[in-house]
Design a protein around this nucleic acid. Structure first.
Lengths: 328, 328
DNA sequence: CGGCCCGCCGCAAACGAATGCGGCGGTTTG
DNA sequence: CAAACCGCCGCATTCGTTTGCGGCGGGCCG
């Protein structure tokens, strides 16, 4: 309620002096400093950040866009991103786009409205064109948007290879391969191409099963699994993102087939849920903490004025051995 | 870059007119309206929200404080809260306090700094006194803070009762009861008291096991379970929050005891992970969506100037039958 | 002793928008 | 025919800061 003017009057100085003291820029005598401190305490003064933001043209807020925050991968990502942003002096605005591209658009527009200083986008629904129009700090997670927008991604090719090799090593002959919708372009898909490539080379049969784009709710995954079993597909290995691999394993167990005896599983992402189930699942794990760290670092650089052209940070994945495969 | 003045000059009108048109308040002739529209388009004008916020003294941003967003309960809560806030015209600032009470304090201070219009706090680490000092819109999730701060909570007493009755019905004689640290006061604990009460009345032995306060990482839960089994405690029923109940079940299965044959499980919270495991777990489920909805509603009311005294919204829980108990 | 630098500080102009007030034509009303 | 009213609009102030510029004493140097 009390403004800087009130403090100044109360302390018998000018507003400039109070301001200088707040940001300790310029000279202010020790004695006046004391007087101002007292005045601030007595009036219970807190600077109004809005006025500062208006003058400085920055808010210190970063928007993080994710499709669904309840999804383990994204909740972990957001968790780390928040920590990194906080450490870098930023606050985080969270945007669950739920695949609503108008929500995505609205949040992007906040850059123009000066509400946020930057955006980290983990969503893929919007037309790429919309992003290109915006000449503001944006970092993309796992998506190539345009040459002026840096990307941080993982080496999905390597991920596909690791998964495939694991299943081959474990002697699988017929592998169920859950894959994202091919219609959507994403670095993301590389893992599927590479997976198929390695399998073909190793003469292992694969049964591709295409999933809808951006359906992250697990009810959907349950439906899919029901469908798979209804069709009496026979397989001795499974590869897919955490959620569907787990659902698939559960149904396998319910039908009294042995894991990993009869069927081996390799999950992709390796979030905590793969460690939560019994048997724990072998998984290609994405370095979520590093993804968050790099995203924030890149964005900070952009905000600080650094220019990036065709910048891509590629992080490597690892295979974590669980109990759904036998050979390491 | 272009400001309202530029638009006004470009359209040959005064700034007031442009402003009136933007907020359509007051009169502006159709013809001038057109001219301004053209000017806005040509200059690619977007109003600077910071200036508006300064004038209006509100930002439309709500801070949501949670201890750990990677925790399924909170990630679901945040998910719903974001949707409700968005629908109510607010943006969400997410704060992962990670039990750092200084972070909590810093975010509360944003109310004074006019960065956020309100706070929904799901964390319990800070001294209650700090909250009482703040005469701004705050809603507490599952915690009684003071008479001027509305609380939205679930009926934990009923939750404790439902869980206890389920285990009694299933014929348990000796139940392992994981409970939160009693040192911390919270409506939250009611479930444990009620649980013990019902068990005593039914002459079922309980083995209470006290957990540390606010440790939400699942490594910790693993340690606890290891400890339990190392001490060779014998039990035929388990009650605890999702994560620990699941860890405990996994270890039980690994030791070749049958679930639910030898040991029954009832989890508390009933997040998606209880449905993700095999066998799926019977759980007392908290109405997370409703919690979020009510929190937002109360906060909106507070911001709109409505006064609440000793307001408490109590939501009821339900028992969801899974496969870790046999009798419904 | 005069000029100059230096520590200290006040004044006023930004920042970009919202809005109360009053003015200006033109029409209705008494 | 004058007063009241109405649609429309510009001007100046306000929101609460930051900061450039310039002033004012006092000490130091030539």
């Amino acid at each position: 309620m009390a403004g800087i003017k009130d403090v100044a009057r109360h302390a018998g100085v000018g507003v400039g002096t109070v301001s200088r003291m707040l940001n300790n820029s310029g000279y202010v005598a020790e004695e006046t400093r004391k007087k101002i401190e007292i005045a601030m305490r007595e009036l219970n003064y807190t600077p109004n950040e809005l006025a500062r933001q208006l003058y400085r043209k920055r808010t210190g807020i970063i928007a993080v866009l994710v499709p669904n925050i309840a999804n383990p991968f994204f909740s972990q990502f957001v968790n780390y991103a928040e920590a990194e942003l906080y450490a870098a002096g930023f606050k985080m605005m969270l945007c669950n786009t739920q695949n609503e591209s108008n929500a995505e658009l609205e949040y992007l527009d906040m850059l123009n409205r000066h509400i946020v200083d930057g955006v980290i986008t983990g969503v893929h629904s919007l037309n790429v064109e919309e992003y290109r129009k915006i000449q503001k700090p944006i970092v993309a997670l796992d998506r190539y948007i345009g040459e002026h927008i840096p990307v941080v991604a993982v080496d999905h090719r390597e991920g596909g290879r690791l998964a495939a090799e694991a299943l081959v090593r474990n002697g699988c002959r017929s592998v169920l391969h859950f894959r994202g919708a091919v219609a959507v372009e994403s670095p993301y898909h590389e893992r599927h191409f590479e997976f198929e490539r390695v399998m073909a080379r190793s003469h292992v049969r694969t049964i591709p099963y295409e999933l809808e784009w951006n359906r992250l709710d697990f009810r959907y995954y349950q439906e899919i699994v029901q469908d798979v079993f209804a069709r009496e597909i026979s397989f001795d290995g499974v590869f897919g993102v955490d959620e569907i691999a787990i659902e698939c394993m559960n149904e396998t167990i319910r039908r009294h087939r042995k894991v990993p005896g009869d069927v081996k599983f390799v999950a992709y992402d390796g979030t905590f849920i793969t460690e939560l189930v019994e048997p724990s699942m072998t998984a290609v794990v994405q370095p979520v903490a590093a993804l968050a760290k790099e995203s924030v670092r890149l964005l900070s650089d952009l905000i600080a004025g650094k220019e990036y052209k065709n910048k891509q940070v590629l992080l490597s994945v690892t295979l974590r051995k669980g109990k759904t495969t036998v050979v390491p």
